[in-house]
């Protein structure tokens, strides 16, 4: 299977680490771009994201990346990996920045942890949820191949996604609540954690993505 990967660049920050992690994981050709033709030629698409959701959504729409994603996900049905704010952008709305309408590719909300955010025993939890937390796999998925349930991945976020359909959740983290660490639907896999920053486990997940045919 060819491994030409397009990383969608909507100008919101450093995508080199995503690109170099994909190369390290075995991608033959990684293009960081928002060019429609380049993305259309790619075999698979990575949709990363950092920063505030409002700026992200403005940039995504401003560059037509919403249509690109729509095309990749529902028309061309390519394997798509959305990361962090990329994942959040797929939802219907986000509470961040006073409320932002997102892409509604995956119906659901993006909600704040709360301030103060507390564990079930009353202990105060820092927000952002920053660092390495364990991801419990809720069901089998090709992208989990070779990764044990309970493996640590690197997270950094203050908002988390709640899909309307709980069956889409394929991995959870525990941080005062059971949050969605990863969700999957058909040819889309989305992670709240950063596989490109999650050392060996993250590289394994990216490698799995590169050989994934887009079915569950």
């Amino acid at each position: 299977m060819t491994q030409r990967v397009a990383v969608i660049d909507y100008g919101m920050g450093n995508l080199h680490s995503v690109a170099s992690a994909l190369e390290h994981a075995g991608a033959l050709e990684v293009t960081v771009t928002h060019d429609h033709a380049a993305i259309s030629k790619a075999d698979r698409v990575v949709f990363p994201g950092v920063g505030g959701i409002r700026d992200c959504m403005d940039a995504i729409r401003g560059l037509g990346c919403d249509q690109l994603l729509e095309q990749a996900i529902t028309v061309e049905r390519k394997p798509v990996l959305a990361i962090c704010v990329g994942m959040q952008s797929l939802m219907t709305t986000s509470e961040e920045n006073g409320g932002v309408v997102c892409l509604n590719q995956v119906p659901g909300e993006v909600t704040f942890f709360g301030s103060p955010h507390r564990a079930s025993d009353g202990a105060r939890l820092k927000v952002p949820h920053m660092g390495w937390n364990q991801v419990v796999q809720k069901r089998a998925h090709p992208l989990w191949a070779g990764i044990e349930s309970g493996t640590h991945f690197y997270f950094v976020h203050s908002y988390h996604v709640v899909p309307n359909d709980p069956d889409l959740v394929v991995g959870t983290f525990d941080y005062g609540l059971s949050g969605c660490a990863a969700l999957a639907r058909d040819n889309v896999f989305a992670t709240q954690f950063h596989p490109e920053k999650s050392h060996q486990a993250g590289l394994t997940l990216l490698k799995n993505f590169l050989s994934w045919d887009g079915t569950c």
Partner: peptide
């Protein structure tokens, strides 16, 4: 299951 403390 808890957020790990980090060594930097």
């Amino acid at each position: 299951m808890a957020l790990a403390k980090r060594i930097i």
